[in-house]
Design a protein around this nucleic acid. Structure first.
Lengths: 225, 225
DNA sequence: TCGCGTTGTTATAGCTTCTAACTTAGCACC
DNA sequence: GGTGCTAAGTTAGAAGCTATAACAACGCGA
């Protein structure tokens, strides 16, 4: 909370935590969340296994921290991709979608870590996770909101119940510029793109012999217009 | 392979295997794939832990068997839902989609087991898994193929590359009645519905405060017309 | 009926998480 | 500058897991 400079002790502590997380992240990148082992990290750091419990109360806590870190990394990546193309419109949607896909393909285990790691409910609702999620979502929403209004984006296919929930979301949103139609486009975009990435990463599209990149591109095109 | 009646020994063996799988499945249903423990199963069966290795060479082999079993159960469920509504058309698509969602919600851990369990490549490409996958897919394809032809189902938004791959799939498919357009509708249906179910089950849609059922219904509607 | 293969056993190695009790080392305060 | 408290490391150990090896006994099939 306090902004004052950290004491020497706290500084070392943060460094050690960072080192633990770095090694843990590499374990996950190599072998998935299952491969995360406090003991193995300790061995690599040349300390006893028990020492790490001074920094993380449990393996689960470290895992949760890595989920948060990865989610934030995804958010940063998407924000960077959007910042590069400062012009809005379809090109920006393409850029963000491409960045999303590239991140997932570059670090599949991390993508899985973020989206299909089951944490205890308390940790899942952690402020940092919700924040990172909103940051990522916002990048998509900003891009989608800049598209020329689509004829049936707000009308056809939206049930009254769904329209009401979108309206409620619109009301409490911190960004009043985002219309309910854009919000809807946002979740749809997210669920569709995630659907492809998730199945692709787990090899379930392999049997069809269809290049997932083509499916992905087609969905992006469909969402844009 | 041989159809001859099993010997007494083989019969008992199958029974024991089934019992192991039953208990293992319950463990997964309760606590996810991580909770699967040969030792715990043995304790529940009142045998030593080592005894189970006569029936499954490793924990991974048991896990793979449970993945297959669950996938087949999903396929059976979908087939049953289709069989109930013997009339084809939109109603059938609705029925199958609803059955898919219901299965996922009834046994979330099993859904995750099927779709986001990482098995070694050898096991993932197992004949039984591919078969169960095709069975499930076929139920959707049969239903989708019976829809009145949609104006831009085959034209707009399909890149030449994608069209070619769909054509190739069509050629080697055992069901010549399924047009490339229907095949495309099939994968799209799968990726979209899975996208929603996957995010919903892992709690990622919670932050939006939107009922996933409404999103799901909207996607089904969009796919149909 | 007899033998052999199947199925169980116990023992053990090696890994994991995590706790408890003890030692050391350094930061902070007087 | 000395001294004491606290943080950070240590080892020991419990309880759990997968998996293998060596051995005992049961029962099916010839």
């Amino acid at each position: 909370m306090s902004e004052q400079t950290l004491s020497r002790r706290e500084l070392y502590r943060e460094q050690t935590r960072a080192e633990i997380m770095m090694i843990g992240l590499r374990q996950i990148a190599d072998g998935g969340a299952e491969a995360l082992s406090l003991n193995a990290i300790a061995k690599e750091m040349a300390v006893s296994g028990a020492a790490l419990y001074r920094y993380f109360a449990s393996r689960d806590e470290l895992l949760a921290a890595l989920v948060v870190q990865s989610y934030e990394d995804l958010a940063r990546t998407l924000e960077a991709s959007a910042a590069k193309r400062h012009k809005l419109g379809p090109a920006r949607v393409h850029a963000v979608a491409a960045a999303y896909r590239a991140w997932a393909l570059a670090e599949p285990h991390r993508y899985r870590l973020v989206f299909s790691t089951r944490l205890d409910p308390g940790r899942l609702a952690s402020d940092e996770i919700v924040l990172a999620s909103q940051r990522s979502m916002n990048v998509f929403l900003q891009a989608l909101g800049s598209l020329p209004p689509h004829s049936d984006a707000t009308g056809r296919g939206v049930s009254p119940a769904l329209a009401a929930q979108l309206e409620a979301w619109h009301q409490r949103s911190s960004e009043p510029a985002l219309s309910p139609a854009t919000l809807r486009l946002g979740v749809t975009c997210w669920t569709r793109l995630h659907g492809i990435m998730s199945l692709e990463l787990d090899g379930h599209l392999h049997a069809t012999n269809i290049d997932p990149a083509l499916l992905y591109a087609a969905e992006v095109e469909d969402l844009i217009g």
